[in-house]
Nucleic acid binder design. Structure first.
Length: 354
RNA sequence: GGGGAGGUUCCCGAGUGGUCAAAGGGGGCAGACUGUAAAUCUGUUGCUUCGGCUUCGAAGGUUCAAAUCCUUCUCUCCCCA
């Protein structure tokens, strides 16, 4: 995939850096692992430090010191996750800041402008993400607003400054109704944005529903554009997505569980705080080539977490991101060699996520 | 030597006659986490053959009933000399 700050090999996992930082790791480390595309978040950065600060720095890249690509989420997910503090109207969404309670409003146009100021290499349209369990009628309403907002965003994006080269991705919604997923896909594809995202997955549904709606929705997507499933980050979900033709995914999961003491291994998740690792002299994953696994034992890492030392979350975050990067490199290799399904089967046979 | 305060379940610390196996922290153990209001949150934490049993410095006593009241002992801390 070709982006303003360099090419990105796909399919790819993108670490999440909500506040202009992938939590607990330096940009240099993320860079060293091989990542060339990370996320930022419109909602968070707009509220703090605020656009004046980022504008003064000359955009998010310069402000944060990350020299590769940045995809920014639109704030659509916060419309969902911060639901108690928001009100959706045709014009946009009114919400209260989780930082100081102040009222703000996002419109599709304003969100494009913010992301233009951020200098996003990929920006997402403002959408309405919904949880499983809502009625068909409610799902229609959210889908329709999402489509109208996407159209407005596209129009505004086409009028960005000439020197702004960031791409715009539309987002498919439709909740967990096949007819609505199909309809949303059609309406979003019609806008002909440079890339397409599937939103509204991984929002509390069962793995079976995730799988069904992932494959169902993905079938409508064109093969000549980047396809992005938002919000997934476990190896099993990622393999499922790749099989469905998806090129990109992001998730807080790998970095969040790392901060809470859980790491990825080829045999599944491992909760380092568990008593059984007290004397375990092995690295997290014996076959892993990451700097953390070259230097530290499970026993020591467990100690860091029990002692609440900041180094624990840092090291495990680095390992988890390194693990996923290596994993995706292997996935790409298997695709090139035409043996992806075999790779997937072998990987999952060993990796049992608890 | 004189005066004062106090010893509570692994630790700190509430509790001053029954609603107390005993609040709340911490620690321990376990679980959760999927477009980040998350270095967060939740559960659990005397023993048990699930009928009960043992526990609040120790020993005696008062009472239908004591961690709580009385007596003695013991230990700790603070102040004065």
């Amino acid at each position: 995939m070709h982006l303003p700050h360099g090419d990105v090999e796909i399919p790819a996992f993108m670490p999440v850096g909500t506040n202009g930082t992938v939590k607990a790791v330096k940009h240099n480390s993320v860079d060293d692992m091989g990542y060339t595309l990370i996320l930022g978040n419109t909602y968070h950065l707009y509220l703090r430090p605020g656009m004046e600060v980022i504008k003064a720095a000359g955009g998010l890249h310069k402000f944060s010191g990350w020299k590769h690509n940045i995809l920014t989420d639109s704030g659509g997910f916060q419309v969902f996750s911060l639901a108690p503090f928001r009100k959706i109207r045709e014009e946009g969404v009114r919400f209260r800041s989780h930082v100081d309670g102040a009222y703000h409003e996002f419109t599709p146009e304003k969100v494009v402008e913010i992301q233009e100021t951020l200098g996003s290499d990929i920006q997402m349209v403002l959408d309405v993400c919904t949880a499983p369990g809502i009625s068909h009628k409610e799902a229609v309403k959210s889908l329709e607003i999402t489509s109208r907002w996407a159209k407005r965003a596209k129009t505004r994006w086409e009028n960005c400054r000439d020197d702004y080269q960031g791409k715009l991705f539309g987002i498919i919604q439709g909740n967990f109704y096949e007819d609505l997923r199909k309809r949303s896909a059609e309406e979003i594809l019609e806008l002909d944005t440079p890339g397409i995202a599937i939103g509204g997955l991984s929002v509390g549904e069962t793995p079976e529903m995730f799988r069904d709606f992932l494959h169902y929705t993905a079938q409508f997507l064109p093969e000549d554009k980047p396809r992005y499933v938002m919000g997934i980050g476990t190896p099993d979900y990622m393999l499922e997505a790749v099989e469905a033709g998806i090129d990109m995914f992001d998730c807080v999961y790998p970095t969040r569980i790392a901060r809470n003491g859980t790491c990825f291994t080829l045999d599944g998740n491992l909760a380092l705080k568990n008593e059984k690792f007290r004397l375990d002299q092995q690295p997290i994953e014996p076959t892993c080539t990451c700097p953390v696994c070259q230097q530290y034992s499970r026993s020591y890492l467990r100690h860091l977490f029990k002692a609440k030392e900041i180094l624990g979350p840092m090291l495990v975050t680095e390992h988890n991101l390194h693990f996923l990067h290596t994993f995706m490199a292997e996935v790409r290799q298997s695709l090139r060699e035409g043996r992806f399904l075999e790779y997937k089967k072998n990987f999952l046979d060993r990796f049992q996520k608890r």
